[in-house]
Computed example of a mutant assay.
Amino acid sequence: MSNERRAIVHPNKVDLAQAVAAHFLSKVPQIIAEFDEATVVLTGGSMGQAVLAAINESPQRDAVDWSRVNFWWGDERWLPAGDPERNDAQARAALLDHIPVNPARVHAVAASDAGLSLDDAAQAYANDLRAHAARNGKYPNFDIVFLGVGPDGHIASLFPEREGIRETERTVIAVRNSPKPPDERVSLTLPVINSSVRIWAVVAGADKASALGLTLAGASYNEVPAAGLEGRRKTLFLVDSDAAAQVPAALIDPGQFWTSADSTDEH
């Protein structure tokens, strides 16, 4: 990979979530100032919720013009609307219901009770991506993609040794027989994820240590999907000390979490 990746380590999950939230709240206004909008892809899971909750609780929250932010999701669980296990429901509860978002800029995957099949829902999301694509492409210009990493190294709903992680043509796939419940899901594919300017993988917990170590050591992305992450400008692995337990010292960022160099947008 040409995009060097290192782990930026925090002592615990709380510090990690607060630091990621703080950087997000400083970065998004810069993006909006330059491009008149910002486009963010959200993730689910405990750390995904924790980061959004930290954004909501920050005194800097209201400094963002949320009406200029577009929200998408990297994947979704194929469940009824409002189900608390849906990633969009978790994001709404943690942040989106508390800020003045423009509903037209919130792009959720269709729910299982919306009258579509799983395949139709995946196609509908692909169509939505195309409808908002930049320069007649297949998907928008993503500024920041948030991701978690599973204990098996999965990202979004792209699992090891499955067809989905090897998909290069479709932008969105229907996932069946997921090794992690629920069985059915909708997911962006790796080329779409890697189209983002910045990928921020937020990883916490000792159960992620092996996967993170393999990811940063350059494992095959077919075996460890997170190893395939490569944002156009930056790919950051933002982790707690438990998750970093198996990361070689040479791959741990020795400096501060973020520095004044960020103002030039290295991140």
Rank of each mutant, 00 (worst) to 15 (best):
S2L: 15
N3F: 08
N3D: 12
E4A: 15
E4N: 13
E4Q: 15
R5A: 12
A7M: 13
A7H: 08
A7V: 13
I8Y: 14
I8H: 15
V9Q: 13
V9G: 10
H10D: 06
P11E: 15
N12H: 14
N12Y: 07
N12K: 08
N12V: 05
K13T: 11
V14N: 12
V14W: 06
D15G: 13
D15H: 08
D15K: 08
L16D: 00
L16S: 06
L16R: 01
Q18T: 04
Q18H: 04
Q18M: 07
Q18L: 08
A19T: 11
A19V: 09
V20D: 02
V20H: 00
A21C: 04
A22T: 13
H23K: 11
H23I: 06
F24P: 01
F24K: 03
L25W: 01
L25Q: 01
L25P: 00
K27F: 09
K27P: 00
V28K: 03
V28D: 00
P29D: 06
I31V: 09
I31K: 09
I31D: 04
I31H: 00
I31Q: 03
I32D: 03
I32L: 07
A33F: 02
A33T: 08
E34P: 00
E34S: 14
F35I: 06
D36V: 13
D36L: 15
E37R: 15
E37I: 06
A38W: 02
A38G: 09
T39V: 12
V40F: 03
V40Q: 09
V40I: 15
V41K: 03
L42K: 01
T43S: 10
G44T: 03
G44N: 13
G45M: 13
G45T: 10
G45H: 09
S46T: 14
M47P: 05
M47D: 10
M47T: 13
M47H: 14
G48H: 04
G48D: 02
Q49G: 14
A50D: 05
A50Y: 01
V51E: 00
V51T: 02
L52Y: 03
A53S: 12
A54R: 01
I55A: 02
N56V: 02
E57K: 15
E57S: 12
E57C: 12
E57R: 14
S58M: 05
S58L: 01
S58D: 00
A63F: 13
A63N: 07
A63W: 05
V64R: 04
V64F: 13
D65F: 08
D65Q: 10
W66N: 08
S67M: 11
R68I: 06
